[in-house]
């Protein structure tokens, strides 16, 4: 059985992360593991170390995990979690939130490895939409 790269979406907003997750499952296919880690522990706007950490652990199916933060404290929180778990198979990616997640998810759903999914997300920085 193919193991897929897991994707973790870190956002200030639970709804934003959940909505993007829904979009990825529509475009990338249901076989993919995408975990949303949005909002604070209380459901407010912000980020949660515990939610991000739990999402990464849940997304890790053995093929690696790509962590995509939206901006600001999402980046800081994701970095703090990654510093603590320090696993080479879990990487944070610098890419546009929607486009990067979509590019990574679609290629990951084909069974591509972590490096390929990371490259796809990073390429999203240079792909114009018009």
């Amino acid at each position: 059985m193919t193991r897929f790269v897991g994707i973790v979406l870190v956002s200030h907003s639970a709804e934003l992360a959940a909505g993007l997750r829904e979009l990825l499952s529509q475009v990338g296919g249901a076989s993919l593991t995408v975990e949303a880690a949005g909002g604070t522990d209380e459901g407010g706007i912000g980020t949660s170390y515990d939610l991000v950490r739990a999402a990464i652990e849940k997304a890790d199916g053995g093929a690696g995990v790509l962590v995509l933060p939206d901006l600001g404290s999402s980046v800081l929180t994701a970095r703090a979690v990654l510093d603590d778990i320090a696993t080479p198979g879990v990487v944070i990616v610098d890419a546009p939130f929607v486009e990067g997640a979509l590019a990574a998810a679609v290629i990951a759903a084909t069974g591509a490895d972590l490096a390929t999914a990371v490259a796809a997300a990073e390429e999203a920085r240079d792909v114009r939409k018009l």
Partner: peptide, 10 residues
């Protein structure tokens, strides 16, 4: 193989 590039064709 690039979903964004394919979409950007418009």
């Amino acid at each position: 193989r690039g979903v964004l590039a394919v979409m950007a064709l418009g």
